[in-house]
C-alpha cells in the first residue's frame, strides 16, 4: 500500500519534470541554428542583445535559439553548453560567465566543430573562440570619469563601487575609470569597494563612505545592482543629486532613476549592436568568409536631457 503510494508520487514528480522540460524545449540543432547563451536570464542588457541578434539572424536566414542560465554562474552555464554541443547547432554565441571555468566546456564544443563567438564577456584562452564582440570596458570607464568630472566641476573625492573582485568586465570599467580620473588632479579616488552584487551592500557602502567623507562629490557604479543600491544609499542619506551618481548600463530601471534625478548620467553599452555583430561573425565563420577576431562596439554617455541618445540606447525588456 505504502509502496504503491510512494511509487505514485515518484511517477507524478517525474511526469511533472517531463512536462516542464517539454515546455521549455531542449536545445535545437542544425546548421541554420545559432545557439545564444547569455550570462543570465532576464537582464535587459542580455534581452536587448538577444533582440539585436535575433533580428540579424532572421535577416541572414538563420534562427536564434536562446538558452540562458538562471544565474550568472559557470556551474549553471556549463551544463547548458554541454547540452547545446550535443545538439550540434551551426554556431554558438556565448557570454562566458567565467573567463577560465567556461574554457573546458567550450573547448569541447570547438572540438565538435562548432564555431564559437564570444559576446559581452570573453575567455582568457584566446584560441577557443573565432571572434569576440564586447564593449570596450576600460574605455567606458574612462567615459564615466570624464562625465563625472564634468558634473562635479573637476574636484572632490570620488568612490567606485564594483560588483565582485574577479568579474572581468566590471573590474575593467573600474580600472578604466580610475585611470582616466588621474587626469583630473583635484579629484581624489577613495578606492574601489565591492558590493557582491547585493543592492543592500552598495547602499551600506555609500552611507558608510558618506559618514567618513561627508564631502563625497561623486560615485561611479559599475553595474545595475551597485547603481540601484548607491541610489538608495544616497536617498537614505538625503544626498540625492548632491552627490553625483554615474551608473553603467541603461536598463529601464536605471533610465527611470535617471529621469527621477537619482542618477545623473549613465554609460550605456550597445547590446543590440553586440548581438548583431556577434551573429554576423558567426555566420561569416559558417560560410567561410573572413572573421574579425576582436570587435569593440562603442559606448555612449547619456544624460537625462539627452532624449535622442536615451531613446536609442535604453535597454529593452522585450523585443
Amino acid at each position: 500500500m505504502r509502496r504503491t503510494r510512494v511509487a505514485a508520487v515518484l511517477v507524478a514528480l517525474l511526469s511533472a519534470v517531463l512536462v516542464l522540460t517539454a515546455c521549455q524545449g531542449g536545445a535545437k540543432g542544425g546548421d541554420h541554428t545559432l545557439s545564444f547563451i547569455p550570462g543570465t536570464k532576464g537582464e535587459p542588457f542580455y534581452i536587448s542583445m538577444q533582440c539585436g541578434a535575433q533580428a540579424k539572424a532572421a535577416e541572414l536566414g538563420y534562427t536564434l535559439d536562446p538558452q540562458p542560465p538562471d544565474k550568472f554562474d559557470p556551474s549553471l552555464q556549463t551544463p547548458i553548453v554541454s547540452a547545446v554541443t550535443a545538439a550540434k547547432p551551426g554556431a554558438i554565441l556565448i557570454a562566458p560567465t567565467s573567463p577560465v571555468a567556461m574554457g573546458a566546456p567550450l573547448k569541447e564544443a570547438k572540438r565538435a566543430g562548432i564555431p564559437i563567438v564570444e559576446v559581452d564577456t570573453a575567455l582568457k584562452d584566446r584560441s577557443v573562440a573565432v571572434s569576440s564582440v564586447s564593449s570596450d570596458n576600460p574605455k567606458g570607464g574612462g567615459l564615466g570619469a570624464d562625465a563625472l568630472a564634468k558634473l562635479v566641476g573637476e574636484k572632490g573625492p570620488v568612490l567606485i563601487i564594483d560588483t565582485t573582485a574577479g568579474t572581468s568586465t566590471t573590474n575593467a570599467r573600474a580600472r578604466g575609470f580610475a585611470e582616466q580620473l588621474k587626469k583630473y588632479p583635484e579629484m581624489k579616488n577613495l578606492g574601489t569597494q565591492y558590493n557582491e552584487n547585493e543592492a543592500s551592500k552598495a547602499a551600506t557602502i555609500v552611507t558608510a563612505t558618506l559618514a567618513a567623507h561627508p564631502d563625497l562629490a561623486g560615485i561611479f557604479a559599475t553595474n545595475l545592482s551597485s547603481t540601484e543600491g548607491a541610489a538608495t544609499g544616497l536617498r537614505n542619506a538625503g544626498k540625492t543629486g548632491q552627490v553625483k551618481l554615474i551608473g553603467f548600463d541603461a536598463s529601464p530601471k536605471q533610465v527611470a532613476d535617471m529621469k527621477a534625478g537619482a542618477i545623473q548620467a549613465l554609460i550605456a553599452q550597445d547590446p543590440a549592436a553586440i548581438g548583431a555583430s556577434g551573429v554576423q561573425q558567426a555566420v561569416n565563420a559558417l560560410q567561410g568568409k573572413p572573421v574579425e577576431r576582436t570587435l569593440l562596439p562603442d559606448m555612449v554617455t547619456i544624460t537625462a536631457d539627452d532624449q535622442a541618445t536615451l531613446a536609442k540606447y535604453a535597454y529593452k525588456t522585450k523585443c
Binding site: 547585493e198 543592492a199 543592500s200 547602499a203 545595475l224 540601484e228 538608495t232
Partner: peptide
C-alpha cells in the same frame, strides 16, 4: 520593506 527601499525587486540579490 526591501521593495520600498530599493524601488525594485532586486532578483539578483538576497542570496545570502
Amino acid at each position: 520593506m526591501s521593495l520600498a527601499q530599493f524601488g525594485a525587486t532586486t532578483l539578483s540579490g538576497h542570496t545570502t
